[in-house]
Design a binder for these strands. Structure first.
Length: 643
DNA sequence: CGAGCCTAGCTTTTT
DNA sequence: GCTAGGCTCG
């Protein structure tokens, strides 16, 4: 039973333009949909899901791959509203979460213990730091040797793009070329550490699941005959691994619909390559290509600006966005003197909008990097304007959360040395060295760890250790519900928290929140996986009505979203493009696309703010230019805003 | 080897 | 504002 104009079926033609309709109702076989910004991409996917089910396809045979789980949930939700509950039976998630599910079920066939834990950013850096310290003593002490974080960037880029470490270093990190061999060594040691500790990082979820599908032919056949219709959103942001995973999953049927926009490719730092979308027709011969060029989101004055930003970009699928919403206010461009002035203008614009009947949830302030909004956040707090912040540092990355999660991690995977070290270092008198020694001992033999053998000198330390071990055994074995286990852990952690953090009540609240989050999960493993793969956002402090906040977001986290009013702050050189992109023309082009993504989020009002000065702690107040990406935009595209 | 205290230096973007 | 790293002392 479906809803629709005639009461028996959705009237597809009435809700879509001819191109969207062609995509949504395409017959079997590979299809590439080039969907410009605001061209109804989501709508098309939603209708595609509905149409497939209407054709009698079993919802369980459809796999929807998206960039975030939120995006998948929203699409399936809309599809459910459109037709009926069958749409909610479609499996939707990220590449990483699909990889995780496959490995949880089948990893033993490639020799991976299914109780593996997923490392988050911090774990990865810790492990690489260990690998780094493991080098011939003197090398890691050198100031000029890359830091763990840089090493991770190099290693991960190599994995994601399938390019040798040697070439990555040569191309992008030529100043480290003397150390190429050592970097490779760190990479190998890091692999060893992960294997020994039964840990998988984000990249492993992809590489190992691809390996699983490659090596286990029977499984590959089983999986690809189960999911017979693949829908891949944001295809321009897939990397080689993800493209490979799609190819594996499509074995035998090639029913892949990839949707994306090469002009919005903004994840090259993790190996994404918009060439994937260019090469799609080569990988899937006979692919039908459909372009969606009518924009339903923004007014023509906004498109005038965004088209000028992107049209100088080289290569890609040519497309020209147009809209029928010819009229609307001209985008605003203002150059406040200072960052403080910029924040005051933002506040004033928000107040004005509220006065004229606007709603806070329709306003977003967007910026290149998480920390660009610090000053503004303070100003908004002073003015009493509630906000939710997306992107930047995460709640689960703060130390106290990581500490508590470490207890759960070791109970789930006792071989996780990284987490053991974290826990052991909390014992007074135990530092890095001792912690590693004890952790090795426990990880080798946790079932009957002989605490006496651990040679701790002080009695107090031995007591602390056996207490810690006690908690470990309890969390591991007792048939308590997850929230109770978390409570037990928090109780044990409390003295440490109290002794080490000045703002401990606030952090305790975070921990309570963590415990209540755990309530919705059946097991520790699933809870931990979710926390690593889809971490909750920060800045949602307070419980008040979510719909009554403005949104603060990084450009990246704004992808796929839209607002009536979009305010871009720090539209200056040194912020966008980021100085990190200066040494490579391709990186600069990516920054351009990033600004394009940000500006195309606006439906009716677009405001560009570019302070004239920036405070530098060394140089004092210095002048900064408007971002180079506005150079080619004609001045009469803007309304000038008097400060 | 651990801890405490100080300073410098600093931050892209995310699964 | 915050933490990674350096330095010194016990």
């Amino acid at each position: 039973m479906t809803f629709g104009n005639n009461g028996d079926s959705v009237d597809y033609a009435a809700h879509m333009n001819p191109d969207q309709l062609a995509a949504a109702t395409a017959q079997d076989g590979p299809v590439l949909v080039i969907a410009g910004a605001g061209s109804g991409k989501t709508r098309t996917i939603v209708f595609r899901v509905a149409w497939l089910i209407d054709q009698g396809i079993d919802p369980h045979a459809i796999l929807l791959l998206t960039f975030t789980r939120k995006a998948a949930a929203e699409m399936l939700n809309r599809a459910t509203l459109l037709m009926d509950g069958r749409a909610s039976m479609v499996f939707g998630g990220t590449f990483h979460s699909v990889g995780y599910s496959l490995l949880r079920k089948y990893s033993s066939s490639i020799g991976i213990d299914r109780s593996f834990s997923i490392m988050d950013q911090r774990d990865i850096i810790d492990a690489i730091e260990q690998a780094r310290k493991n080098l011939t003593p003197s090398i890691s002490d050198l100031k000029s040797f890359p830091k763990a974080k840089t090493l991770y960037e190099i290693l991960s880029r190599s994995v994601g793009s399938s390019i040798q470490i040697e070439n990555i270093v040569e191309d992008r990190y030529p100043h480290f070329m003397d150390y190429t061999d050592d970097i490779v060594t760190v990479g190998n040691t890091y692999q060893d550490i992960k294997r020994q500790n039964n840990l998988l990082d984000y990249d492993d979820l992809l590489t190992q699941s691809v390996r699983l599908l490659e090596e286990d032919e029977e499984l590959r056949f089983h999986i690809s005959s189960n999911w017979r219709y693949l829908l891949v959103d944001e295809y321009q942001d897939t990397n080689r691994l993800q493209a490979g995973m799609v190819r594996m999953l499509a074995t035998g049927h090639n029913n892949v619909m990839a949707v994306g926009d090469d002009s919005q490719s903004i994840y090259s730092f993790r190996g994404a390559n918009f060439k994937n979308i260019i090469e799609f027709p080569d990988i899937f011969p006979g692919a039908k290509i459909i372009k969606l060029e009518e924009n339903y989101r923004s007014t023509q004055p906004i498109l005038n600006v965004t088209n000028q930003i992107i049209e100088v970009a080289s290569s890609g699928y040519r497309k020209k966005l147009f809209t029928r919403q010819a009229t609307g206010p001209l985008p605003l461009l203002a150059r406040p003197f200072s960052e403080q002035d910029q924040s005051r203008i933002v506040t004033r614009l928000i107040m004005d909008s509220i006065k004229s009947g606007g709603s806070l949830k329709d306003i977003a302030v967007l910026f290149r990097a998480g920390f660009h909004s610090f000053e503004l956040e303070a100003e908004l707090a002073r003015s009493g304007i509630p906000f939710a912040k997306y992107g930047g540092f995460k709640f689960v990355e703060s130390q106290h959360i990581k500490d508590v999660l470490a207890y759960l991690k070791v109970s789930n995977n006792p071989r996780d040395l990284i987490s053991w070290v974290r826990l052991l270092k909390m014992i007074p008198g135990v530092g890095e060295k001792t912690a590693i020694r004890i952790a090795r001992n426990i990880a080798d033999d946790y079932s009957s760890a002989n605490l006496e053998q651990l040679q701790l000198k002080a009695k107090k330390q031995r007591e602390s250790l056996s207490e810690l071990f006690d908690i470990f055994l309890k969390v591991r074995n007792e048939t308590l519900a997850l929230p109770e286990k978390i409570e037990m852990v928090i109780k044990h952690y409390l003295p440490y928290l109290q002794a080490n953090f000045d703002n401990y009540p606030k952090r305790l609240k975070d921990l309570e929140q963590l415990a209540s989050m755990g309530a919705t999960y059946p097991s520790i493993a699933e809870f931990l996986a979710d926390v690593a793969l889809e971490p909750p956002e920060t800045g949602l402090q307070g419980e008040s009505d979510f719909s009554q906040r403005i949104t603060l977001s990084t450009f990246h986290s704004a992808k796929g979203l839209e607002w009536e009013t979009v305010i871009i702050i720090w539209a200056t050189e040194g912020k966008i493009p980021s100085p990190m992109a200066f040494n490579s023309p391709e990186d600069i082009e990516e920054e351009r696309r990033l600004l394009y993504v940000a500006t195309t989020r606006a439906k009716r009002n677009l405001v560009i703010l570019a302070p004239q000065t920036v405070y530098d702690r060394r140089l004092g107040t210095i002048h900064v230019d408007l971002s180079r990406f506005f150079e080619q935009v004609s001045f009469d595209s803007f309304q000038r805003y008097m400060v």
